[in-house]
Nucleic acid binder design. Sequence first.
DNA 1: GCCAACGTTGGC
DNA 2: GCCAACGTTGGC
Length: 153
Amino acid sequence: MAYWLLKTEPDAFSLADLQAAENGTTVWDGVRNYQARNFIRDGMQVGDKVFIYHSSCKVPAIVGIGEVTRGPYADPTQFDASSDYYDPKATPESPRWFSVDVQYRQSFQQPITLKAIKADPAIAELALKKSGRLSVMPVSEQEWQYLCGLAKP
DNA sequence: GCCAACGTTGGC
DNA sequence: GCCAACGTTGGC
């Protein structure tokens, strides 16, 4: 079992939207970055825990937790010509992009803000601090436990 | 809305 | 295979 951080823009899809979705579950589609794709395709497994991070908003923060409940599998939007995420070079035989299903687990009473994360030397190695633009990134078990402690003081 | 960081594309 | 141009991300 591994731990991850997934970014989402709350204006487009928030943790509350995940909670409200059917079965509290959504397809995490539209990842179009190779490094992020590799983490999904080669690293993610059913049962993995994910932090949900809100980006491009007033208070960027880790706001809660979800769990991988299916996948990884080929991102269906890459084959959909009407989708913003359509990729004409992808085929079902050799898909280029991958998705997982993510199910809602919990919302933090106290979100862990990017400001707090940046100011905390205990998590200096967190990928979020180092590679600001990656939308899927691994989190170590130590980082996971530490951050959960911050969220529920 | 600005701009820095950085990934991707395409000409050579 | 290099690298300049370009586009996107995302904090502020």
